[in-house]
Write a protein that binds this DNA or RNA. Structure first.
Lengths: 135, 135
DNA sequence: GCATGTGTACTACTCGAACTAGTACACATG
DNA sequence: CATGTGTACTAGTTCGAGTAGTACACATGC
């Protein structure tokens, strides 16, 4: 299975699924129109309850990353259709994440150049990392 | 009081204290040698239990942000003395935070330039934001 | 129509982290 | 010795995450 999950992680399992799928889409590893496993199949693969998968799918649909069709399945959405209802709030949260990251970098003794390099490295990791990629 | 805390936030209260103090130090709003309130005084100001403040102080000491002297009080540490015992782990966590931030930015429809601008803005916010600063 | 597979909704329950509350202890200072 | 500091411990509450099981509504294909 291309996604793994750690039940003992402090990050909730459903959040790990959300992050994993968002990452796979951003990396191009999942493409618009691709079908995701059913909540039950996915739950068996990850050895978790199907309600946890359902919760992740609901969050992903709110984020406009996937589209759910009752009775048929869930599919990766085409990017940039319509933005999620709370974009502004999400952007604000992202701002705060970056602010806290700078503060943390300061206390870890990282100088500005190092941290900016890390920032760009993270961008490259976000698109295509994880080893296998379309070349 | 220069720090406030929201007991209904999903982020734990002790974590809010940690972030707040780290931010105040990084912004220069708290300087090395400055004394922090006692756990009990701070707890009264924030209307929380003193054990919660103590937990925050312990985390801040592990991060080498403050120094605790039993019987005397807690003080802002001088920067760059000795690094925390788990720097590598913290840096790795920071890497992952940035990677997830890029993924989130992608799904919010932010283009690279916008996100890099946001990154630099966050740096400026981290040192000196919050309105009042030493000019 | 009916069986099957899809996501959804609901209840009941377990588990662990966060937090409260209260108390006791060890150390430094005056 | 009194006071103020951080620390440690127990007991209990609260809440979110997750499990388990079931039932429902919709789409598809036989």
């Amino acid at each position: 299975m291309w996604l793994q999950v750690d039940p003992r992680s402090p990050t909730p399992v459903y959040q790990q699924i959300v992050d994993g799928i968002k990452g796979a889409v951003a990396a191009g590893w999942l493409k618009p129109g691709d079908r995701l496993p059913s909540v039950r199949d996915f739950a068996v693969s990850l050895a978790i309850n199907h309600n946890t998968v359902a919760k992740a799918y609901q969050e992903l649909e709110r984020s406009r990353v996937i589209e759910v069709v009752r009775g048929r399945g869930t599919f990766v959405a085409s990017p940039g259709q319509r933005p999620p209802p709370d974009v502004e709030e999400r952007i604000e949260k992202l701002r705060d994440t970056l602010r806290l990251a700078w503060i943390e970098a300061y206390h870890l003794g990282l100088v500005e150049d190092e941290f900016e390099r890390m920032f760009r490295q993270a961008r490259d990791d976000a698109r295509g990392g994880e080893g296998k990629e379309g070349l």
